[in-house]
Structure formats: C-alpha cells, structure tokens
Design a protein around this nucleic acid. Structure first.
Lengths: 244, 244
DNA sequence: TGTACATCAGTGAACGCGCGTTCACTGATGTAC
DNA sequence: TGTACATCAGTGAACGCGCGTTCACTGATGTAC
C-alpha cells in the first residue's frame, strides 16, 4: 500500500490514540460541568496522569484542546448530515423534500445525542475565542448541503412560491452570492437561508429546553414542522416522472 | 396616596438603588468576560467595595445574582416586545402582519443592543442551574404575544394556508393546548410555534455570529425574512374593511 | 547483535492567580420613649 | 430635644479550593552505526 495515509510507528499510533482519549474525556467533562468549564487538571486526573503538565505534550494549551473539540463537533455533525443525504439520494435523487427531511433529522438526532457538543458549536460564543479556519470549513458543511437542495431546485427552473426579494434584502445577500455559482436566483437563496435558520432554531430550542413545557413528542413535532417548511419553500414540488 | 407601592425610607431607597448598581456592573462584566464568568469579587472591586463579602447584604450568593440578571433580561425583552406591539396596535389593531413585524424587530433590536444578556437567556443553558418560576413567567411574554396574533387570526375564522396537522404532531401539542383557551385550531398553534421558533433562530444566528460571513445588512435581511414568514403563516390576510 | 546516542512521555515542584463563602467585628444610621 | 438602644452596611481576616502554565528532571523507547 504505497498511498497509505502515512506509515505510523507504534509510538505515533499510541500518540494518536491518546489524543483521542484526551478529547473523549474532555467531552465527557464538558457534558458534566458545562461549556467553558473545561479544566486541563481535571482531564489529566481522569486520565490517570499524575501531573497535568503531561498534557502539554499533546496540546499547547487549554484553548487548543477546546478548539479541537469544536472542530470535531462540526466534523461529526457534518458527517452525520452528509451520510443522511447520501442515503436519501440513493433512494431518490430527485426527491428534494425527502433529502431535506433526512438532513434535518440527522442534525436533530446528532444534537439530541450530543447536547453539550451542540451547545459548544451553536450556543453562546465563548468570549475571547476566535474560530480558526478549520472550524469554518467544517461548519459550512450543513448549510452547503441545504444549499445544494435549492440549487437543484434552481436547475429545474422552479423558482419556488414566487415571492419577490426586495432590493435592500437582495443587496444584503451580496457576500453570500459572491461565494456561489453566478446566476443563483435570490429567491432560492433566501429559501436556503430560511431552511438553515429554521432548522437550527428548532433544534436549539429543543436542546436548550425552551420547548420542553410545550411539546410532548419533540421528534414527531419536529418531523411535521420541518416537512411543512420544506413544502412551503418549494422542495415538495416533484419533478414530473416516476412517482413511487 | 394610600396605594403607593410602599413608603420607602431613605435607607430603603439607597438599598434599592445599590442593588441596581450591582446588577448593572455585573451585566457589564458579563459582557466583557462572557457568560458563566460572573465573579462576585470582581463586581465588588468595580463597585469600590473593600470587601466582597459586603455583597452578601444584597444577594445570598452568586447564583442569586445570576438569577436576578436572567429574570431582568427576560423582563427587559418582554417590555420591549410588548411596547412595540402596543404601539402597532394603536396604529392598526387588525394589521396582524404589522404587529408581527413590530414584535420581531423589537426582539431583534433588543438582542443586538444587549447581546450578552441575550446569550444569557437564549444561549447554552448554564449547567446545574434550574430556572425559578419568575424566569418562566417573564420568559413566556414574547411567545404569548405571538400567540395573541394567531388567536386573533383564529377569531376571524381564518385557518391559515390550510395544511393539515397530522395526528402525532397534534398529539405532541397537548401540553401546550392544555394551557390555551379550548378550541384553538391546531393549524394556527403550529403557526405560532413556527413564528416563535424562526424569530429566535434568526436572532440567535445573527447575535452569535453565524451569519456575519454571509449577510451584509442584517437588519434589512431580517425585515424581509420575517415579513415573508409572517405572510406565509397567514398574518397578511387583511380583514376586509378600511384599507389605508 | 550490540553499543552510544537522541528522542520522547511523563513527573513533580513551583509561580502566581482568582474564586465563593463564613464569621466576628466596627461604626454609622435610624427608632422609641 | 435628648438619650438609650436596635438595626444595618461594610470591613478584614481566614478557610479551602481549583486553575493554567513553566521548568528542570528521570527513565523508557526508539535509531544509527
């Protein structure tokens, strides 16, 4: 195997594994004591290390460990969402509503399963902490997937329910439009942002407990609201063809 | 004046004023150092107190001060939203879209002006912290206002765009329906929850920085998205009558 | 296969810091007669 | 109007705690010849 990721000596393997252990313990403590309360000494203790300074062999400091957790969180969420979309696409590539539902549920399932990691990436920003480029790259994956659905809609020539985008709103989209293939219809870009915003709004409300006094079966309700939104944004408009 | 709130001795007045000072300083520090970093000693220092223990004359502990800040936050936000709706209602009580826009902008304006207080109440929940009843009462005010719009819609006999609510989603609404006047149409209750969810989703994204790389003029975009949502939820359906 | 050396993981002490909370106390401000 | 007492605000010391990070070090594991 000439193109293996790299030959790992036993020492390198042990090192990589231990970095994984460190992050896992850190994640557990984050869950127990809340974001912002990440303590290197506590992590070292739980790992059985006699001295906390040993961690400096693996991370240059507390912030670096925190960053690694954040990037991992985005990556893990991105993986889950992409896998869900890939599965849905294999079933019916043209069923944009189905793909939207798959992505949305994947995001929610992940958030419910990892509430503290979710809080870390979508909760209050940590003060004095600026996200490195890695974070941005991983954080873009889910919105990118959602954008893909609306670009597919645009490719069909379907412009959605047909609400016009007023000039000033259109102007404020410029930073985004510059990152997109030219000619993307503003109406559908708005649709994508709306879907993205609503998805994380609903998940945040559930994960942060703002809905617990109101909804009995969050998953069932989420399924409904997200399907309803997808339909209203035009994703349900099936291309005429094989319906099953 | 027999029914004055209470006769305040000078000492009482000074006490109330000083409690206000404490909270104001605490809010400033929260803004500077981030949520969760509230320190009694730092607050005492900034107030010019020689010893931090003096604060225990005013709050039984750190958690009590934090709670006061949270309740104040909800109250302040609730005040802003209610004032906006009252103003809009005086202009045109029947213009539900106008009232929705007024409430939404009030929430966003408040959040943009007080980002750290916003993070305190709508960001990641503080661990090991359970909200006292006061919090709930104040926190319900904005959703209650939004609910009022949809109840008004229901009173008109207008059931909105007419998407049926499937049985399991309907079932999961039971905890909420028990707190509402009986006979509220599920379709409109869903509309209210959708509006509420989207509003705070959009504001959270903006305040927490998830949109900064994408939108140039957040306020203009917000105006558009929120108007669009309100229309789609049926709030734009004007009652036939005086149009001006 | 064996030796000399370099690399690396982890230790342990120390620096300097900040924190919430308690407690007995001083001294000023108010109240009752 | 004046005196005796109670209430209250703020002090200052102390307890016990945890934290991130540095540094010189020991001893094991790998590498080169």
């Amino acid at each position: 195997m000439p193109s293996a990721p790299k030959a790992h000596t036993p020492r390198e393997r042990a090192r990589i594994e231990f970095i994984g252990d460190i992050k896992q313990v850190a994640r557990r403590q984050l869950a127990a004591d809340g974001a912002g309360a990440l303590s290197l000494r506590a992590v070292a203790r739980e790992l059985g290390l006699v001295s906390a300074s040993a961690l400096y062999r693996y991370f240059p400091g507390r912030d670096a460990l925190l960053t690694a957790l954040i990037v991992d969180g985005y990556r893990s969420l991105g993986d889950a969402a992409e896998a869900a979309d890939t599965r849905a696409r294999q079933e019916d590539e043209a069923d944009l509503l189905g793909r939207w539902m798959a992505i949305a549920h994947a995001v929610r399932d992940w958030a419910v399963a990892h509430p503290h990691e979710y809080a870390l990436i979508y909760g209050s920003p940590v003060p004095d902490y600026t996200a490195p480029p890695d974070t941005v790259e991983q954080g873009t994956r889910v919105p990118y997937l959602i954008g893909g659905l609306f670009l597919a809609l645009a490719a069909r020539g379907d412009a959605g329910p047909g609400l016009a985008v007023p000039p000033d709103a259109d102007r404020s989209l410029r930073p985004l439009l510059e990152q997109l293939p030219p000619g993307a219809p503003a109406e559908l870009v708005v649709g994508g942002i709306t879907a993205w915003t609503y998805l994380f709004g609903a998940v945040s409300f559930e994960v942060f407990g703002h809905r617990s006094a109101i909804l009995g079966e969050p998953r069932a309700y989420f399924d409904h609201e997200i399907r309803r939104l997808g339909s209203q944004l035009g994703l349900a408009a099936q291309v005429p063809g094989p319906t099953n």
